[in-house]
Computed example of a mutant assay.
Amino acid sequence: MSYSFDHVRLEKGMYHETGRSFTQVLEREDPSECYKGTPLEGLDAYQRQLKRFDIKVKGAGSDVVDKFFATSQSAVLFPEYISRSVRQGMEEENLLPYITAAITRFDGMDYRSIASVPEAEQKELRHVAEGASIPETQVRSQNNLVKLHKRGRMLVAPYEAIRYQKLDLFSVTLRQIGAHINRMHLEDAIDVLVKGDGNDNPAEEFTVGTTPIGGSAGTLTYDDLVDFWAQFDPYEMNTLLVSGDVMRQMLKMTELQNPLTGLNFQGTGTLDTPLGAKLLRTSALEAGTLIGLDRRYALEMVQGSDVLVEYDKLIDRQLERAAITSISGFAKLFVPAGKVLRLGA
């Protein structure tokens, strides 16, 4: 049986269409809907092209890098392979979905978010008499722009050095690059949560042993967590981002040694506190620090681009210095939805 994917002409220009990714361009030329009920159902347009050129990128039977360059058309698929492998690394152990309320795609480098900072009186849903005006909640643009940052790594790998390497092995290196890029984005997110996004909106900070948080500086107890939790009203502290040393102290708390909590941690690798907050550990946070969030309202992620690769160099086998980048930034939404607790000296 003949399929249309066998006749798609692949060329560099497919990476250069404004507003469309390479896969989206392929899907336009070879729609996946046409393969429903066939053995190829479930594959996207890029995966069908891999099948067309018999390129195996995973498993013990994976091909070598040189297989992509068997023809001029199959070489066009190589940048997409790089991009997907890097994205996979970015998505592994990715904490950003757990701390962002919304993701906005934006084509540019400077972004202006919105803000709504109602007073206590404006939060009330009052009875409105007939003919009376309805109370207002104002939504306005932020005064200062949110800057997007380009984060990336330079792939330095002469073609002759990798041409006979298995794709499955090469993917491991690419996933590690993705993990490094995502770590940079997480550091940007933490910086905005703590210091603000340039609109005079840093997080409110508390210190153990200083009112209203009880306890002794340098040590974290369950009572201190309860005091911190109490500062979030009317928001809900449903996420705790903690440093490694704080995580160790929390895991030793009697209240977190509930058998059901331990069973869930052993079975899924995730840990919820008795306060109902998801506990996330990261070395991107400085020692002795916790960030409490209502992830539904605290942070907006602005994506200027997905993973970008220098496709011209990759297709032409010029891997000596090929950049892999991703552009994103972060904006504060509702400032009281994120707070910082420090253990102190």
Rank of each mutant, 00 (worst) to 15 (best):
M109E: 07
M154Y: 02
R126W: 01
A323R: 15
P274L: 02
F106M: 05
L145H: 05
E310A: 13
R153M: 06
K278G: 11
G209P: 11
F206A: 01
G209L: 13
V246A: 04
S305C: 04
Q49V: 01
E41F: 04
P97S: 09
F68L: 06
E92Q: 11
E236N: 05
L155I: 12
E33Y: 14
A322Y: 04
A189V: 12
A189P: 13
Q176R: 14
R175K: 14
P336H: 00
L225I: 09
D63A: 07
T289K: 09
A120H: 07
V307H: 03
R52C: 11
Y222Q: 06
L10S: 10
T104Q: 12
M14C: 06
F330I: 13
R9Y: 06
Y35D: 11
L95I: 14
E119I: 02
P158S: 14
S62K: 10
G269R: 05
D63Q: 03
I99H: 04
Q49T: 00
Q142R: 15
G131R: 15
Q122H: 08
Y81H: 08
R28N: 09
D197H: 09
Y35V: 14
F106P: 02
D233G: 07
K252S: 10
S326E: 12
A129F: 04
V302E: 08
G276E: 07
T38D: 11
P31L: 12
G108M: 07
L319P: 13
I177P: 02
A120D: 14
G59P: 08
S116V: 01
T289G: 03
E204K: 09
G344P: 04
G37E: 14
M301H: 08
A337C: 00
F53L: 03
